[in-house]
Design a protein around this nucleic acid. Structure first.
Lengths: 244, 244
DNA sequence: AGTGGTCCAATGGTCCAACCAATTCCTGCA
DNA sequence: TGCAGGAATTGGTTGGACCATTGGACCACT
């Protein structure tokens, strides 16, 4: 007898049900990020559940960054929601800053190379001109502000992820990017961080424009390698100064 | 005047305080993953807070995958905790159609290849014997149950991710894996799904044992390619039957 | 008109005391 | 000895209460 054909009935799934109802509500009302959703008391009354149950559900959403709660004001939507969302709680444990950053770079190396290759395969002519435009903006910013072009740099990469045709690349790498910057903001660190990666942006673009997936992949790998080198230099410097 | 020099003050942080206390408790008691931590009622009494507050804190941990709650049994630790943990809740807007599955495979292809290469670089002798053990278990299960070895197959791959030394590989690929299976479990689909990937498990192992990163990467790519082929065959079949 | 002060209703945060539901364990019967 | 059945335990839910913060309305004074 196949036990799997008898899934356990769902007697208790209150807070999950609340979340599903909330997804429905957000979609029905076409709520945009930033808008306020009903108060906990109203939700509890409408859904015929206790306010505590509503709060547990909202706590889960808050933990996922989907929602923000402000006491005295209300609960606000922070991101778009859809019925079939995949929640991926990444926990980077155990380590000092350096190993954590290297781990994010290992992920980014794999994805960046793949995205560049896919981009070279699939880019239309319009896509290529768009990427070139971002590249020009970045290069100009780099020259005028002497290396401080992180914003324009990031936009160039994002354009590549978008052209790759797979939104997962942008979402995952964006998470890595944020995690990386959360550490790198503080003043300590090598001064000309990122300088070495500069020339590879153009070579990546050239390989994409030439519809050369393998070449684009190789150039992307070189770019990440320069970032890893910078990171190692920064770590060595910190170690030398006796810091953690 | 610099407005940024006046960050908002922090007045209340009850549940955050509870979580910090819990981190301290877990470390003080040296709790290992799988062990049970105190009941909500005891925690509430010891920490001099309401049980609701304890529940909100535990709900957050549960959302992060750090803890698992079993009604009637207790709350169990699921992963190691440390004071300096970085949580990055990533929510992917994934659909359940063919293109979404292909997109998860593109991510998995990139990460699987990188993980296999890193594994080949860093595996110790003990690591290699452990991977070989998982491989033997999987191959035996495959033969005796005629292809139904998804559980053992997955454990083989997980062993590789672990040896790669970067926990992010396992976390991200596990999410892709879950998303994939959430769709593939139901009966429709090609019957011998996964058969074609079977021989490449051993070739991957052989390249890892030979400390050949590039070879391991190539074999991993071949394995994913067979899965992509299976998926395309399944999609064509569904299309032929007039389904979505 | 603008500035600051006071008040008040709305809202999230916390607390309490129950009861429900699933699990675990142990007792007593066969 | 084995096992059926009933506590005891534990997370899940409820309803009600109060606190802390917010933001707007209103007002007095400049």
């Amino acid at each position: 007898m196949d036990q799997n054909s008898l899934p356990p009935i769902q007697t208790t799934a209150r807070d999950d049900a609340v979340l599903k109802a909330l997804v429905g509500f957000v979609r029905a009302e076409a709520l945009q990020p930033g808008e306020r959703l009903p108060t906990e008391r109203i939700l509890a009354e409408r859904l015929k559940v206790s306010r505590n149950t509503v709060r547990e559900a909202l706590t889960r959403w808050e933990g996922l960054g989907l929602v923000e709660r402000r006491q005295g004001s209300g609960t606000y939507l922070k991101a778009a929601v859809s019925p079939d969302m995949l929640h991926l709680p990444l926990t980077l444990a155990g380590g000092n800053d350096f190993t954590s950053l290297m781990q994010t770079l290992e992920i980014r190396r794999a994805l960046e190379a793949e995205a560049a290759a896919l981009c070279a395969e699939r880019a239309s002519v319009a896509d290529i001109t768009e990427i070139e435009r971002k590249l020009d903006i970045m290069e100009q910013a780099f020259r005028t502000r002497d290396g401080m072009s992180s914003e324009e740099d990031w936009e160039f990469h994002q354009a590549i992820y978008r052209v790759s045709g797979n939104p997962l690349f942008e979402q995952i790498i964006a998470a890595m990017h944020e995690l990386f910057h959360r550490f790198w903001e503080h003043p300590l660190g090598v001064r000309d961080f990122g300088h070495a990666s500069f020339p590879y942006h153009r070579t990546i673009y050239e390989r994409i424009a030439a519809r050369d997936p393998q070449g684009a992949r190789d150039e992307a790998l070189k770019l990440i390698a320069t970032v890893e080198d910078d990171l190692k230099r920064g770590a060595a410097k910190l170690k030398f100064l006796g810091q953690t």
